[in-house]
Design a binder for these strands. Structure first.
Lengths: 235, 235
DNA sequence: ATTATTAATTGATAATTATCAATTTACTCA
DNA sequence: TGAGTAAATTGATAATTATCAATTAATAAT
């Protein structure tokens, strides 16, 4: 287990243009001519739960688009504990820092079965120098990272543990078509919100008892109305 | 007071090339030819403490380079409280989200006397379409924002209040030539670290008593050795 | 299916932080 | 300078969360 499997390798030309999440990914705006500029192969990777997409020390030759699944960006602290800095979902870009030639800033680890496109940085650079279409996508993505980090900071680092967990669940459920989502382990919830595993567990259990959260294995659904009662004590 | 004064207006050509913080700012890599592409005037603004550089609702026509001083990016919450999302210092870029045509994401407020360059977004766009020099600076800056946000999240949102305040002071003192820095109000420290004003005050007072922090008005110096004792309880 | 292992839950208690309130200190403006 | 206002500090107490420890539930391996 914890395998990474290359299921396909291709040069963008046809495959990327038929990509079912085309409008979400980096190459959204590219024209047919642009695709001819892709020289290195793009790989399609399937990651098992727990497998590592990249680590901080890794050589940085790729950026990754998440096609499906869930990836956590993790920063390990000197004392051995860790903090989850951000979650990446469908359409998100991992390893964007590679484009500046700086090292990866975190470890990227699949939280569930995940499929990604592995795009060589050289491809991006080539495209960038010959076509301006990619530029908008890249800056837009940088901006998305930034604004999500801000929201994260505002919603998920203040207030009581209870309201932080409620906000996290609402964030996780957000924009899922069927409203069901992957519920992280209590340890990961702790690492996401800077609370202990036990506190995370108590609150999740409390939400379940109140009927605000229903789980089957790691698949969860929330009752937003009931959950809102836990969001803020003051209003 | 709380005035914003336009002290100078110029077209980049000579003025920007002589800028004393040229290597820190957006135009660092530009060549003489590039500057000829700047058509709209760049303004030099002087902000008094407390004055507002921009608000979320503002029309977004400018990005700003901080020449000196300290700016806080503030997000107001529905219940009237606020959270400081990030601090900007010399060389940092404010309002970078304007480049994607999205609204400003925060209020930007001067925490002390601050001077900034106000750069029309149109200038940036013009430069970008005619010269590739700016691209590197922009992506590098985006990346810096991202990596600092990550560090922030890891250092300033976990651990005890005491260690968070210690980390904030170390961050503020960092890279100041004379090691002296502007100490924010206790309320702002609270908004930065998601703790109450009172807790912030108690900890600052404790650091002063221990000789780990010395203040004269809002100018502060830290004793890093002594401060480290407060950083982490566990090591 | 059964055992071994890991994750989740719960309890009791200690430590931390928020809250409410009062006082002292610093700053502003006439 | 001196009164008025805002900011910082401190105290007492309540609420929240961490810590340590035990138990139960879920998952994986044979």
């Amino acid at each position: 287990m914890k395998a990474i499997e290359i299921t396909q390798a291709w040069n963008g030309t046809e495959k990327c243009q038929q990509c079912p999440i085309r409008d979400l990914v980096l190459f959204a705006d590219l024209k047919e001519d642009d695709f001819r500029l892709l020289h290195l192969p793009i790989n399609d990777l399937e990651l098992d739960k727990g497998s590592i997409l990249y680590e901080q020390k890794d050589e940085i030759n790729f950026v990754y688009t998440i096609r499906s699944g869930l990836v956590k960006l993790v920063r390990y602290l000197p004392n051995g504990s860790y903090r989850i800095i951000r979650l990446l979902r469908q359409g998100d870009l991992a390893g964007i820092e590679a484009l500046n030639g700086s090292a990866y800033l975190h470890h990227a680890i699949a939280m569930q079965s995940t499929s990604v496109c592995q795009i060589p940085v050289k491809n991006i650079e080539q495209l960038n120098s010959h076509s301006s279409h990619l530029y908008r996508q890249l800056t837009a993505r940088w901006q998305k990272v930034q604004s999500e980090a801000d929201i994260w900071l505002a919603d998920l680092t203040m207030g009581s543990s209870r309201s932080r967990v409620a906000n996290l669940l609402i964030y996780l459920a957000d924009s899922r078509p069927d409203e069901s989502f992957y519920l992280p382990s209590r340890e990961d919830i702790g690492a996401l919100l800077a609370i202990t595993t036990e506190t995370a567990s108590r609150i999740i259990a409390e939400f379940k008892r109140a009927g605000a959260l229903n789980t089957l294995r790691h698949t969860a659904k929330i009752d937003k109305i009931k959950l809102r009662h836990f969001q803020q004590k003051g209003d």
